[in-house]
């Protein structure tokens, strides 16, 4: 006899919102699951979690969640997060950002939120392109890739978002991929418990756009395979030289440290006289 059972994470999803709008094989559904698994494992008070998305496929993850959420403006997620976190430090703020949202249009906010050590968690879904708009080149698109706006291949260098975050002052930074669910969930848990600016970059397959244009395949498995083949652990990477690391995605934790969190640009102090 088949027993009908509800997914234990279903309780975190808004009523009447499923099915979601992600393409078949998209990584966003997996990442939504990883996040909810992390929240559930940690038994966090879901009422106190505020989720934020900008625009893009990734940015739509919050619209499925039973949380207070902000959505619909491109690249301003960290500005939103700051207003909420400073005024209500008791709330946990989680941002779901696409690579375009976070480091193209929102790049400046990203530097400054890292620098300030704003106490929020950013889950970056790096699908190597602007997916929702139809597969244009992004700051994360590998050099020479063909996209909808690089018909002859991209001649722009890519951003290593994790490196950028570390050098700007973020205090928890890691990179995983949808091919590594266990490590990703574990890392999201660490990020959620971390006091300070935490970033979990998740390399994710976009079969519909990045897959078809840059990799010439719309098969999610093959796109995932491409990510896996290019991924290398941080420990292994430490033994390789720059040339050997070319075109590789380094997975692992890049920083985990404590530093005072942002509460405002200037904090009241009694004048001594």
């Amino acid at each position: 006899m088949v027993q009908q059972r509800t997914n234990p994470l279903r309780k975190y999803i808004r009523n009447r919102k499923l099915p979601h709008f992600f393409c078949p094989g998209c990584g966003c559904g997996q990442i939504l699951n990883y996040f909810l698994k992390a929240v559930d494992d940690l038994q966090l008070d879901f009422k106190k979690i505020i989720t934020i998305g900008g625009v893009g496929c990734t940015a739509r993850i919050p619209i499925y969640l039973n949380t207070d959420s902000l959505h619909g403006v491109h690249g301003r997620t960290l500005a939103w997060a700051t207003g909420i976190k400073l005024y209500r430090p008791d709330l946990k703020v989680v941002i779901f950002a696409g690579d375009g949202d976070l480091v193209s249009i929102g790049g400046n906010h990203f530097l400054h939120a890292s620098r300030r050590n704003l106490d929020v968690t950013v889950i970056l879904v790096n699908n190597f392109n602007f997916a929702m708009t139809g597969g244009q080149v992004a700051p994360t698109t590998p050099f020479n890739s063909v996209t909808m706006t690089t018909p002859y291949g991209s001649k722009e260098n890519t951003i290593d978002v994790c490196k950028l975050a570390v050098s700007a002052g973020a205090t928890y930074v890691s990179r995983w991929s949808t091919a590594k669910p266990i490590q990703t969930v574990k890392s999201i848990k660490k990020a959620l418990q971390h006091k300070g600016f935490s970033l979990v970059e998740i390399l994710s397959q976009c079969p519909t756009n990045f897959g078809r244009y840059a990799l010439r395949t719309g098969d999610p498995e093959k796109v995932l395979e491409w990510i896996k083949n290019r991924s290398i652990s941080k420990t292994k990477a430490e033994k390789l030289n720059e040339h050997e690391l070319k075109d590789k995605f380094i997975l692992g934790e890049f920083i985990d440290k404590k530093r005072p969190v942002f509460q405002g640009t200037t904090l009241f102090k009694e004048e001594d006289n």
Binding site: I63, N66, D68, S69, H71, G72
Partner: peptide, 8 residues
Amino acid sequence: YHTLYTLN
């Protein structure tokens, strides 16, 4: 109250 404040 899980309010979604979306521009859409």
